[in-house]
């Protein structure tokens, strides 16, 4: 009897513990979402009224009513397009080499450790590296190309690590099965590993690109332009990006520029979400296929 009561009491305590913890976890989840909602509502309240066609198609101006972000918008599109173009093949290639080809020796572990560390390096460091390496040593100037290559360096570790995780999640038995049927290493990578790993790789790409598009610090090191009245026509042109333009508007004394900054943030969010939607669309297609 006594034992039974103690058991009942313990059970009650354990159940309460469980409930308390699940509530705490729910709160933790809500914190992030609530902050996000507050942020988005605040930005839309401030900026939506200022977001119009004129804002998208105008160059910077001292008059808030006439100012726009055309040059920054196209600068961001250019830089992101080139960054994706460079990052995806190099990142995936590195991941495939490290996971499928490289022998497990000291060199491989050395490379792996360095990639993991590079993922945590502050972005301004990449900006200064890009300034010294691409702008000055390779004489690319403060161009779209130099900016994209700097962001590529910054994004690579993120993509490589995500792609490696994706490749590791492919069951070893699938590989061995293919080898048993006489497939070569490349055939295994191409037909067995890649189809399963592609969705995870695309997720990594989304994360890396989302980080890159919002970076102001490394871009200020490469090209701290704010007033620019043309759209880059080729990768050697000068450029500016949305975060720099937004930063400049936020720091102006006139209240109207604060609204412009909010409108700029909305444009940045739209570009980001469009980019991610494309990647998610691709990912879903491949997920469906591999599940068939």
């Amino acid at each position: 009897m006594k034992n039974g009561l103690a058991f009942q009491r313990h059970l009650k305590v354990r159940k309460i513990k469980g409930n308390v913890l699940s509530t705490l976890f729910l709160l933790a989840t809500l914190t992030g979402i609530l902050v996000l909602i507050v942020l988005i509502v605040d930005v839309f309240k401030d900026g939506l009224g200022w977001l119009d066609w004129q804002f998208i198609t105008s160059y910077p101006s001292r008059k808030p009513q006439e100012a726009g972000l055309l040059s920054a918008l196209f600068g961001t599109l250019w830089v992101m397009a080139l960054t994706a173009l460079f990052t995806f093949p190099i990142g995936i290639g590195t991941a495939i080499y490290l996971e499928e080809y490289a022998p497990d020796n000291r060199l491989r572990r050395f490379i792996q450790t360095n990639i993991n560390n590079l993922a945590g390096v502050p972005s301004i460091v990449y900006g200064l590296l890009g300034l010294a390496l691409f702008v000055q040593a390779l004489a690319l100037g403060r161009s779209v190309l130099a900016g994209a290559m700097t962001l590529t360096l910054m994004s690579l570790p993120v993509i490589i690590i995500a792609a490696q995780e994706a490749i590791r999640s492919v069951p070893q038995s699938h590989r061995l099965g293919a080898f048993a049927l006489g497939a070569t290493r490349w055939q295994v990578v191409r037909r067995i590993v890649m189809p399963t790993a592609i969705p995870g790789m695309l997720t990594g790409t989304i994360l890396a690109m989302s980080r890159a598009i919002g970076e102001a610090a490394p871009m200020i090191a490469i090209s701290a332009l704010v007033y620019l009245t043309f759209i880059p026509k080729d990768p050697t042109d000068r450029f500016t990006v949305l975060p720099i333009q937004i930063y400049n508007w936020v720091s102006r004394p006139q209240e109207e520029f604060g609204h412009l900054a909010a409108a700029g943030i909305i444009v940045l969010l739209v570009v980001l979400l469009t980019m991610n939607a494309a990647a998610i669309f691709l990912r879903n297609r491949y997920q469906k296929r591999t599940e068939e």
């Binding site: 200020i220 701290a224 043309f230 400049n248």
Partner: peptide
């Protein structure tokens, strides 16, 4: 005339 103004 192209004028580029930066804020370094």
């Amino acid at each position: 005339v192209r004028i580029n103004v930066g804020i370094s």
